[in-house]
Write a protein that binds this DNA or RNA. Sequence first.
DNA 1: ATGGTAGGTCTCCTA
Length: 262
Amino acid sequence: MPFTLATWNINSVRLREPIVLKLLEEEAPDVLCLQECKSPVEKIPTEGFAALGYTHMVARGQKGYNGVAILSKLPMVEAGAEDYASLNHARHIAARLENGVTIHNFYVPAGGDIPDRDKNEKFGQKLDYLREMKEDFHAEKPEKSILVGDLNIAPREDDVWNHKQLLKVVSHTPIEVEQLGATQDAGGWVDITRQDIPDGPLFSWWSYRSPQWDTADKGRRLDHVWATGDISNAGHSSRVLRAARGWEKPSDHAPVFATFDL
DNA sequence: ATGGTAGGTCTCCTA
């Protein structure tokens, strides 16, 4: 049975309940993974989601910051939540569908402004977070799994609006790109978005600080859909719903979709 | 080189 999955950094699930509902009504993915919910789990507005058929949710939350949730039309059970780098942050939740597929939903630390762990503790935490992800995948190689989320790294030259200009900007520095690649390799993860859309600029985030985000198009691809090699051939129909960046009271991220025939 | 916008919360932190 094919199922469609979307990942979206929502930047406050309570403030943006209306556009989450809009996405669920108009696009109707089977599973929606949210990041930066910025809400304790008990304050996530689940009633409207359930009314549209999204009767299942697994989530981790905290007050004000971070927070991840998986909304689903399909039954699922929680399959763990990690706190890599011991930050006490709600940045990961996993769920298992009835077809045996495990879905990991991540919100990797943004890493602050200065790409130097000696001058900026947050950058070190980001690298530590990715290293611990990598170590976990190395210790227990994931199977039949999908990993999505805001990984806060745009790895390829065509994942950013200007490669040279962003080489020293956190999210596109060589050390981050290398660390993300090592994490991906450790789990045998395949980048499904780039499997489907191999060539050319592709972005999922445009800063609120950039006026005329659409015409200026100074974007980055920070949001990812990966799958383990045993199911990567089942992935197809990837797309970024760029229009959502222009909706009323938008998130600065657009949702990324993929479909899996499993 | 700098500042630009947004959300949550308790006066500034984070992105």
